[in-house]
Computed example of a mutant assay.
Amino acid sequence: MRFSEPVRMSEDGDHSPVWARSKRRRGNPFISLLVTLLALFGVLTAVLGIKEKSLAEGGAMMDGWISSAVSKVKGEAPKVADQAGEAAGAAATRAGDAAQAGAAAASDELKKQ
């Protein structure tokens, strides 16, 4: 009498049955995140399509949200870059002053010896 593979594995003392294995195979987390985001996008599209009674109008609403976010980022990016540049310049000036003060203190210490 021939037994199937799961039966032979269950009768073997070293192996547990195939259906009793606790180890789950996990996929790539990036792929899981991507699939989740696509599913959320699909649900949002369906909800807006129902609300606006047209998928085209729901898509237009999402396009409006995206374009307003992009224009906001484009409008604020130069201002933020200028502020970051000014902060970096001020930090460099303070670091230079601190280095100069340290060098002067070291020079004075060497002159005393």
Rank of each mutant, 00 (worst) to 15 (best):
G49I: 01
R94P: 00
G75E: 10
G89L: 14
G89A: 13
A77L: 15
G64W: 05
L48Q: 05
G58M: 08
A91P: 00
G85K: 13
D14P: 00
D12T: 02
A90Y: 09
G75F: 05
A91T: 04
V70Y: 09
G42C: 10
A20Q: 15
A69F: 13
E76A: 08
G13R: 06
T93W: 06
F3R: 12
L55P: 04
R21S: 06
R25W: 09
V18R: 08
S22R: 11
V35R: 15
S22L: 09
D63I: 11
R8T: 01
V70W: 10
P78I: 03
I31L: 14
S71E: 15
A81F: 10
M62D: 10
S54H: 07
V73P: 00
S71I: 14
G58R: 07
S16M: 04
A56H: 13
G49W: 02
V7S: 04
A39E: 13
P6G: 02
L38V: 07
F3H: 12
A39Y: 08
H15Y: 08
I31H: 10
A39K: 09
R2L: 09
G49V: 01
T93C: 03
A101G: 00
L110W: 08
L55Y: 15
A39M: 13
E76V: 05
A60T: 13
I50N: 11
L38P: 00
Q100L: 07
S32G: 08
V7D: 02
R24F: 01
T36S: 14
L40P: 00
K23T: 04
V80W: 07
S67F: 13
S68D: 13
A98Q: 14
M61P: 01
G59R: 05
A60L: 15
K112W: 06
A92Q: 12
A77Q: 14
V70I: 15
R2N: 07
A101W: 03
A104P: 00
A104C: 00
R94Q: 11
H15L: 04
K79D: 13
F41G: 04
L40S: 10
G13W: 03
A105H: 01
A90L: 15
